[in-house]
Design a protein around this nucleic acid. Structure first.
Lengths: 337, 337
DNA sequence: CCCGTATCTGCCCACGTGTGCACATCATGT
DNA sequence: ACATGATGTGCACACGTGGGCAGATACGGG
């Protein structure tokens, strides 16, 4: 009796197909077939099974199903910087799309110190894919995933490796576009505030500014590195604007630009009359009335759609050659230029 | 031969313990033990196995392990509103903590139309727990989870149901605190902008304002409902400020307050000289130089820590009675009051 | 030499499912 | 009546792992 009690109360064991089969008076196979679209099963029996299953709260165990060799429907999503508004907007959009596809995103914080260990642990699941959003993934991990056959899709940073698909914005084109627009409006004394020096996107965006200026016979008056945050944008822009006389400030992302706007206001520099400020990404808050920031749209919906598309193609054909999709950014004129 | 080829190339099958065992010249059990801390195994043999495993990229399959009856280490996280800055900050913090615990968060977008279906699908996995962040979860789903024995932890909204632990902010205390502070500073003509009318947190926060005013012999001059976004905050605040002469505006969250700040500025109302504006949550951007918003901190780290604590307790003792943990908010004085 | 003990290892079962295969049932055409 | 095809169903296996159980080996004491 003590045994019975411990069995029935201590472990409220999950209801299984066998239990449902007994309750419905059919074989376990029939239950399995009842939940498999396209399987041969008498319509009446299928209905009966579904009723019994619903009353007992039965659902086929996805773990067992995934074990059988099919897809696990689990997708790891590695987020380089969870503090960044663009990355979070991106991830949230991606999560919605994956949910709609019945793929289950496991989120991993890439900024944490224990990330490498976490990735190792999560790779114990037979993942359908690993999606990288920005960040600086250890190449060791990429090699590992490639070895165990987990397809990877990188976005925001191009990873040149076997089995890695890429979706990335034409960063240089984006800042080039913005710079050209400002030049045509008569700006000549340009400053640029980047992200961390080695960051993929920061490098591309800087090049875009320099090359557009160079085509017009101009060059950067001043530049500095930030870290993609508002606070640092504020500090770096303050220092830059105090030291140099600029009439245009191109920032590597919107957060930096928003910091720069506050800096200009505090220094009494009129935007956009005396100074144009443009950002990059077009995060939601760039359009808020408080900022009304002119920026370069790094279209999230496009990118997410392409990521999803690549994922589907990859799952349909695992040996498909790797692909790199480039997304076209476009200038969004608002009130700061 | 064609068979061989299809086996070796078409399906790059996952490397299994059996393969490693053969390569290392040991039994499959030995491989399993090599990855099980505390299991009897010759130290040298364990080392050898680890080396071989590393070279082949072997990791024990977590699906199979979870199937065996232990924990799956998967935790579903249901996010009511992915567009809300507070919710995203909360989720990101939660994700980091779960990662550190080797629990794998599966994110589900609660705002999507297909949410109910998605939840049903994800419940096919034997989840360790389901964490609800805000939103209005169908009670049907709560009942279902309770039936199949998946523990739930709700945060941001108190769910009274069997098997649901709660972590929630003392919303009324928070706005009460802010209101009292403004009264002591001499404010008398109060307005309040809430969230959607039926929202749990909005109701509590409104009550806090009304009760604090009532204690001081005052009452609300004007109030309206928003939807917790900046844009709507701007519109609603504009309407409110045009119609009524207020000297204090309490907003149900920071986004609404940020919209209200822009509205006041556009209407030429000086903040904080002629009007105090306070928000709720203390999201990161409330502290940005552009806003410098006085607000009520709804401490994320505290709440996440309590959620994690409840999760650990629940896993250690599944029959532990449900618990409701209340978090104390506190006023954060900045530049808008 | 024998026995007890401590340490190590292999066999085998259970976990819950999907599905190939063989078989059963039944309607239909000749 | 019999062959044939269509439709439905149960058996049994495989998926990859953890761990219980018993057997093997080594070692030391009597």
């Amino acid at each position: 009796m003590s045994d019975d009690q411990s069995k029935t109360t201590h472990r409220p064991r999950r209801v299984t197909a066998q239990t449902v089969a007994e309750a419905a008076g059919v074989s376990r196979s029939a239950v399995s077939r009842a939940f498999t679209p396209g399987a041969y099963l008498d319509a009446g029996k299928r209905k009966k099974i579904h009723e019994v299953a619903a009353s007992m709260g039965y659902q086929p165990n996805a773990l067992a199903a995934g074990l059988k060799g099919g897809r696990s429907h689990l997708v790891a999503v590695f987020v380089g910087n969870m503090r960044s508004a663009y990355d979070t907007e991106f991830v949230m959009a991606l999560v919605g799309k994956l949910n709609a596809l019945n793929k289950w995103p496991i989120l991993i914080d890439g900024a944490d110190q224990t990330t490498e260990q976490a990735i190792q642990q999560v790779l114990r699941y037979p993942l359908d894919a690993l999606i990288l959003r920005g960040g600086s993934m250890q190449s060791e991990i990429v090699t590992h995933c490639s070895k165990i056959g987990v397809p990877m899709i990188s976005t925001g940073r191009i990873v040149e490796a076997r089995g890695v698909d890429n979706v990335c914005c034409r960063n240089a084109d984006g800042t080039g576009l913005a710079t050209t627009t400002l030049i045509q409006a008569g700006r000549t004394r340009f400053g640029f505030i980047g992200g961390p020096a080695q960051f993929f996107s920061s490098v591309g965006r800087r090049q875009g500014v320099e090359s557009a200026l160079s085509k017009a016979g101009l060059q950067l008056v001043a530049q500095a590195d930030g870290d993609f945050t508002v606070d640092t944008g504020f500090k770096v822009a303050t220092a830059l604007l105090k030291k140099h006389s600029l009439d245009a400030l191109v920032c590597a992302n919107d957060a930096t630009a928003i910091g720069a706007l506050a800096a200009a206001r505090d220094l009494g520099i009129a935007v956009p009359e005396a100074l144009s400020v443009v950002g990059f990404d077009d995060i939601e808050m760039a359009g808020w009335p408080s900022f009304d920031l002119s920026t370069v749209c790094n279209p999230i919906d496009d990118a997410v759609e392409r990521v999803i598309g690549l994922l589907e193609q990859r799952l349909a054909n695992p040996s498909k050659p790797s692909e790199t999709v480039l997304i076209d950014p476009y200038f969004v004129p608002r009130g700061t230029h």
